[in-house]
């Protein structure tokens, strides 16, 4: 198959892999429910805390942050755990020995995770409205939706970068678990970055969700989301480029150190 033909088939491949992985996630009613319920529990805790201020702007701030937390959790923890599950199931070996570049297979897997995260985000916004009576006013709906989409894709690309590490290191899935809660703080989902120590700021700025969250808030408030959106998209592309560039080297290292399979 020519290189051009292979490239032409990529969109279909990404679509099929994304769809089938999404179906795998959706087919388990319990698992799917947990993806929705779990973020709702954290959102509820956050909203109960912030409610004591009785400041509507603060509650909207917390609602948007709580909604983004669901996607982050899906990306940080579930993406890396899912790759580990593939290692246990023996399917990781088959993905690795497929002629398709590894990065092209991992990317739609991460996108499937992000799609689940989107659902949890919607559920959180709905929950905030129904249970806490918080309605998020969206001043610029087009920019708001665009910010959401770009943020989700950027988070998926971060998940993709993490999943490359999971292929090389058998215990790298734990990295996802470790990142979950610090990510909520570092990305400014619930607490403004200005309240965090100064040395944290550069780390936050390297995380695309920080910029994505800022763009979502700006567009909801009618501000200018474009600068933040640009940084979010730029960082997402950088994650994709790094993941794509290192994936073959990482795979060779995994072949050298025999870490792809369990046996």
């Amino acid at each position: 198959m020519s290189r051009l033909k292979r490239l032409g088939r990529m969109p279909r491949l990404v679509l099929v892999v994304w769809w089938l992985h999404l179906r795998m996630l959706a087919v388990s009613a319990f698992g799917g429910l947990m993806q929705i319920v779990w973020p709702l529990i954290f959102a509820t805790s956050a909203l109960l805390m912030f409610r004591v201020t009785a400041d509507e702007q603060v509650l909207i701030y917390a609602t948007l942050g709580a909604a983004a937390m669901g996607i982050w959790s899906a990306m940080a923890t579930t993406a890396s755990n899912m790759l580990q599950a593939q290692r246990w199931a023996g399917t990781l070996e088959l993905i690795v020995v497929a002629p398709t570049p590894l990065a092209v297979i991992l990317l739609p897997i991460a996108l499937a995770m992000a799609t689940v995260g989107m659902a949890s985000m919607g559920a959180t916004l709905l929950w905030a409205g129904l249970v806490f009576g918080i309605t998020v006013p969206v001043a610029s709906p087009v920019e708001f939706v665009l910010s959401l989409v770009v943020t989700v894709i950027a988070m998926a690309l971060l998940g993709f970068l993490l999943s490359v590490a999971v292929v090389r290191y058998r215990t790298a899935w734990a990295l996802g678990n470790v990142l979950e809660f610090p990510g909520w703080l570092l990305c400014g989902f619930l607490v403004p970055l200005t309240l965090l120590p100064g040395w944290v700021t550069p780390i936050s700025y390297l995380l695309a969700p920080t910029w994505g969250m800022a763009a979502i808030r700006e567009s909801a408030a009618g501000g200018d989301p474009w600068r933040a959106l640009l940084f979010c998209a730029g960082l997402g592309l950088a994650y994709a480029a790094i993941g794509g560039l290192i994936s073959e080297a990482v795979l060779n290292s995994a072949r050298r150190h025999a870490t792809v399979s369990l046996t």
Binding site: R6, L13, L20, R23, V27, S28, L94, I95, P99, I105
Partner: peptide, 16 residues
């Protein structure tokens, strides 16, 4: 969690 058909469809895509 996938059917036999979907398993084959998935790998058919991966194996070009």
């Amino acid at each position: 969690r996938l059917s036999a058909w979907d398993n084959l469809r998935y790998f058919a895509e991966l194996y070009g």
